[in-house]
């Protein structure tokens, strides 16, 4: 039981890192970023390349993943989404654009990094045994970095001027614009930040999960589950959704036949959303 709880916490923290970027982009831009999983995969591959091919320290790989993904986010916002949002009032336009971007990124990743699963040894080797619970050092390290990143992100959003502007845009874009906030600039910042967080998640989690070019869709699906459970566009909701999914998955796999777990998760999610479509932390009015 103790092992299952620890597994749930570690899994939840990892998932939170994945869900944050998606919910941030949705909150700021109202874009359902279907390319989220592919951005995660790109982040993982960049770290892999830095570590295993160029033999650079992990921190270099981590920074490179974040920087490249921030650039990908900024470019996507500036060249693709900003124009689509400006010229089309239909929300499905950006959704289709995001789906196209996902396919493009997946093909490019396959082209540049190949078809193989790629991974790396744990950043810190060894396994801690605490009260009979096994905690691999590599996972503990990722947990600590993820936790620090979450705290840093929430602090940024709560206590800095750009963070407050991003939250204001998420609440009401028009009113925020009337206050003199440059929506385009902060939209780009939000997209870049969201993509950068996804790159961070890909980089960190590649050290314990590995990556392959086809992983993106599965990552996106899980991220959407978390965001829907927690409440779309709500940062705290994404974190809550991530821990709920982490606990459901760990307990499900521990106490039920494997194939039943995700069936029950999906069934439970449908029932939950029927009664609370705005998710755990979302507001019914948006």
């Amino acid at each position: 039981m103790e092992q299952v709880i620890v597994n749930s916490l570690i899994l939840g923290m990892n998932y939170a890192l994945i869900a944050l970027g998606l919910t941030l982009i949705f909150a700021i831009m109202n874009v359902l970023n279907f390319a989220h999983g592919q951005m995660y995969v790109l982040g993982g591959f960049i770290t892999y390349y830095a570590l295993q091919v160029l033999h650079l320290p992990f921190v270099v790989g981590l920074v490179a993943s974040v920087v490249v993904l921030v650039l990908v986010g900024l470019l996507s916002e500036r060249l693709l989404f900003r124009r689509a949002i400006r010229v089309s009032t239909r929300e499905e336009s950006t959704m289709l654009l995001a789906a196209g971007l996902a396919l493009l990124l997946e093909s490019l990743i396959l082209l540049f990094f190949g078809e193989k699963q790629r991974g790396m040894p744990p950043i810190i080797s060894g396994v801690y045994q605490v009260f009979g619970v096994y905690i691999p050092a590599g996972r503990a390290f990722v947990f600590a970095i993820a936790l620090a990143s979450l705290i840093g992100f929430v602090t940024f959003m709560q206590f800095t001027r750009p963070g407050r502007a991003l939250r204001a845009i998420a609440q009401d874009k028009e009113v925020t614009a009337l206050q003199g906030v440059n929506i385009n600039r902060y939209g780009a910042l939000g997209f870049g930040l969201g993509a950068g967080l996804t790159g961070l998640a890909g980089s960190l989690l590649a050290t314990i999960f590995a990556v392959n070019s086809g992983l993106g869709t599965a990552v996106s699906i899980k991220a959407f589950i978390m965001v829907m459970l927690g409440g779309a566009g709500v940062v705290s909701g994404a974190i809550a959704g991530a821990f709920v999914l982490g606990f459901l998955e760990s307990f499900g796999y521990a106490y039920m036949p494997g194939s039943v777990t995700y069936m029950l998760i999906f069934a439970g999610m449908i029932i939950f959303l029927v009664f609370r479509p705005q998710g755990i932390m979302g507001k019914p009015w948006g």
Partner: peptide, 18 residues
């Protein structure tokens, strides 16, 4: 023999724990 995992599972800790 009934502890299956879904395609695209990335974290096998829960399944292997069982």
């Amino acid at each position: 023999s009934d502890s299956t995992y879904e395609p695209n599972t990335s974290d096998f800790f829960p399944i292997m724990g069982r």
